[in-house]
Design a binder for these strands. Structure first.
Length: 447
RNA sequence: GGCCUUAUCGUCUAACGGCUAGGACACAGGAUUCUCAUUCCUGUAAUCGGAGUUCGAUUCUCCGUAAGGUCACCA
């Protein structure tokens, strides 16, 4: 295909949410796949509702996701262009100035209406097939309040024409707008672009996704600790598939495999669990430095200070932390719950907690911990790894009952009912700290 | 209400008109190291209803039903 030009045209009356991201992504993919251009156009003809903060949010979100645009426009800066076409249509007789009875406060007594030829419009939708409308019911619809104030339908058509847009990929809600836009196109003498309408993204109750259902701005997903790769992968697969069972798909692969014809027709319910699953996957393939930075950022101040003073420990616990979360945002909640303290400070716990459920005798437990001490005492400081520690203890633990050895050992190191296994813990803490914590536990047991 | 669109496991989806309707998330059970989490294995689970065309329908046609969109001097 030659000279493909697509566009993403949000109105800055709200934040960039997950549905818009998918529309932007598909348009972007199609342009990139065909070596074409991707245009970002801010549709801010409604001066009342358009807000700069929303535009900033949209730009911020797209940049974060890496959906780069080749050209950027604001409709509010293109008044002369619309005016020129408006004058031409009026001169041609395909539009006219109409006297009106104001129906609501603020209504004009004069607007510009389109002279509807009243025919049936049939267009081909790449995602759905042929669609026909009888446009008679539209009447002579309003296309501008005056020469300086074009309305949505008119501005869109003029812009797509002027910018040479070849493929319009947009939401399902644009489908009913298409006939009247085609009418305007024909009056303008503009070529008809290829259309592809995307099904809606729905809430779990199948209603339109809204803030109430977690339709957050992508910038909020970023704050919650989702990765752009996960967001992109997730939205790509809502309403499209690569033609095989592949679930993990990179942007580069999407560019290769994307096809308008494979776009789903029915709406898709937003499934946060799948997003989390994808995010967990992408967190694991993140570089250690990036993961470390994300984690550190979520730590409360005191914990962060300790971690920064002990980079050695921090580097070792990244994988352990990653294992237990789906988003980086969970780190702060877990940290607040005291989850990571034991990596840096000796834990506090009661004697009872130290005892395994099937071995409540303090003296027996103390004896087993002392045995552990002697078994790991021989390991070289530099070879204090989960493997060597396990090798040293395993046979003994198996012989006398794994739980009766491993539970007290793990508890002595972490002071928590739930934690990584004792071998990993010991290797993270290092030989010296491990021994001192276990010794402390033995003293507590026979005190 | 008019018009437009859509309908496969709970969810995202696959299946030239032709194997036992496949995969993923979630869920359940099991295994891997005491706990938690990973990882692995196994399992539960779907073609909206009714006609028609056909040797044969998830697939094509029609009628229902349900859901969504749209009917602005918003976008």
């Amino acid at each position: 295909m030659t000279n493909v030009i697509t566009r993403f045209a949000p109105s800055p009356t709200g934040v960039l949410h997950i549905g818009s991201v998918r529309t932007a992504l598909y348009s972007w993919l199609f342009a990139r796949q065909n070596g074409g251009k991707f245009i970002l156009r801010i549709e801010d003809t409604d001066k009342e509702r358009s807000k700069r903060e929303f535009e900033d949010n949209i730009l911020d979100g797209l940049a974060w996701l890496g959906l780069t645009n080749d050209e950027f426009y604001r409709q509010s800066e293109r008044g002369e262009i619309y005016k020129k076409h408006l004058i031409k249509l009026i001169a041609d007789g395909t539009a006219y100035v109409s006297k009106e009875e104001p129906k609501e406060p603020g209504d004009r007594t004069e607007v510009i209406r389109f002279k509807n030829p009243n025919g049936v419009v049939t267009f081909r939708d790449e995602a759905r097939g042929d669609i026909s409308f009888d446009t008679t019911e539209l009447g002579d619809f309003v296309i501008a309040k005056d020469l300086e104030s074009p309305l949505y339908h008119f501005a869109v058509v003029v812009d797509d024409f002027e910018m040479g847009v070849t493929h319009i990929i947009r939401g399902d809600d644009g489908i009913s707008n298409t006939p009247r836009q085609i009418l305007i196109q024909e009056a303008l003498g503009a070529p008809r672009p290829v259309y592809a309408h995307l099904p809606m993204i729905l809430a779990p109750d199948k209603s339109k996704l809204s803030k109430r259902h977690g339709a957050l701005a992508v910038t909020e997903y970023r704050e919650e600790g989702y990765l752009p790769e996960a967001i992109l992968n997730f939205v790509a697969l809502m309403g499209w598939n690569p033609g095989n069972d592949q679930e993990i798909i990179s942007l580069d692969e999407m560019i290769k495999l994307f096809m308008l014809e494979k776009i789903q027709k029915g709406g898709a319910v937003f499934n946060i669990d799948k997003l989390k699953w994808l995010n967990k996957h992408y967190m694991k393939v993140l570089t250690t430095e990036n993961a470390e930075a994300e984690i550190l950022r979520r730590f409360p101040d005191d914990l962060r200070a300790k971690a920064e003073n002990n980079k050695n420990i921090l580097a070792k616990i990244v994988l352990v932390i990653l294992d237990h979360i789906s988003t980086f945002g969970e780190v702060s909640a877990l940290a607040d719950a005291g989850e990571y303290g034991y990596f840096f400070d000796d834990p506090e716990y009661s004697v009872d907690a130290l005892l395994w459920k099937d071995e409540k005798d303090k003296f027996v437990a103390e004896g087993k911990l002392r045995k552990v001490l002697s078994l790991i005492g021989d390991i070289d400081d530099n070879l204090f790894t989960p493997e060597t520690i396990k090798t040293a203890i395993w046979d003994y633990a198996t012989e006398v009952g794994r739980g009766s050895v491993l539970w007290p050992m793990r508890y002595a190191l972490s002071g928590r009912d739930k934690s990584p296994d004792p071998f990993v813990l010991a290797s993270i803490l290092g030989k010296e700290v491990t021994i001192s914590r276990i010794e402390k536990a033995t003293k507590l047991l026979i005190a």
